[in-house]
Write a protein that binds this DNA or RNA. Structure first.
Lengths: 202, 202
DNA sequence: CCCTCTCTTGAACGATCACTCAAGTAGGCT
DNA sequence: AGCCTACTTGAGTGATCGTTCAAGAGAGGG
């Protein structure tokens, strides 16, 4: 096996292990030694791939898992019920199932990092903001299927994302999916109300 | 001044400094040395008051600032517009103002801790869950002013809290209050819709 | 075959981590 | 006055933090 291939594998394993650990215990609570052990390599190898040190690795984790989670949610919405309002509600149910199945660990991959770095590390804060921004672009496009008006759709998308993020916080803390299911019902009511008022204005 | 009084002062300053630092940079990212320096004492004094070490201090921070923030929100809602739906919306505007005024640091005092400890420290996880639970009790009571049905009020309260928590995450990451304002508009639409459908069922 | 380049390895750096402890200080009480 | 208790102080514990580096391993191209 070529060194380049071996290296790419190691690099991917490091990013994957870091993403998994960050999601469970945050960035500050995860040491490079633990990341190295979890990915079956040594700390020195991490520095071979990430000359910028832990910060560079963390930024790559944010962007990589941010893109992956955005694609995951987009897929769930696309494969869900045909009615976009019902699809939004079903997505919260799916999120609840996945969260419980993972022992209440696999929620938003970057929320913990975002809160940790928001006031302490400007480059990482920007990275998390950009990921959230990209999610909002995709969600807004989907919400255009509920309400045609761009501004209203963006408001709905923002509300949906806040409810998902907040419900992840509450559900992980409580170790039950009540908050996620309540948020899902709220999303359906909110989206339906916006669709109705929008239709009434046509 | 009596030793007991001096001690109580020191203890309060330690809890206050820890709460402030935790809110900005999380629990794992805050060292006891920094807490001691910020509160004008020494690490040894922290251990005099908190024999259980950092965990004991953290639990007190969670319960203390959890209760304080619950009272703060309750006060804002009570002093807000008479219409409870408008009061909920206004509270999000107030949260946005406060967040921006603090340099996007003072959001939820326990959200970062909750995410950090949810999968790593069971006693602290329970503490955060209990704080969220108490907030939900108060919020549900307030939402009874919107919808009389207990279950619907609790759903609304849960949705409101998830939107506040999620909007704090997005707004701190983006360093702007767009998400909080959008969430506030969403809360008004959601609460209004629930009030209308509930009234129609009477 | 040997050189090169990529990647791995293991040891070491100073700093900081949570934590401990013995000695010192000072007000309250008898 | 003298003791007691509460609190402070500063030094020190081993462990782990992020980071660095020199040396080794191993496949590809000449």
């Amino acid at each position: 096996m070529s060194p380049a291939r071996r290296g790419q594998d190691t690099r991917d394993r490091v990013v994957g292990a870091a993403a998994s650990l960050y999601r469970r215990q945050g960035c500050a609570g995860t040491g490079l030694a633990q990341i190295a052990q979890e990915s079956g390599t040594r700390v020195g190898s991490i520095y071979h791939f990430f000359g910028g040190g832990k910060d560079a690795l963390t930024e790559e984790v944010v962007r990589t898992s941010g893109a992956a989670y955005g694609a995951l949610v987009a897929g769930i919405l696309a494969e869900g019920p045909e009615d976009p309002v019902e699809a939004l509600g079903a997505a919260f149910g799916r999120a609840a199932d996945d969260l419980a199945a993972s022992g209440y660990a696999d929620a938003c991959p970057i929320a913990t990092i975002a809160l940790e770095v928001a006031s302490t590390h400007e480059p990482l804060r920007r990275a998390t903001a950009e990921v959230f921004g990209e999610w909002l672009v995709g969600l807004t496009a989907f919400c255009r299927g509920v309400v045609d008006d761009e501004a209203v759709a963006r408001d709905l998308a923002t509300a949906v994302l806040t409810m998902l993020e907040g419900a992840f916080v509450l559900s992980r803390a409580a170790r039950d999916t009540t908050a996620l299911h309540a948020a899902g019902r709220g999303v359906v009511v909110l989206a339906s109300a916006l669709r109705d008022t929008h239709a009434a204005q046509d």
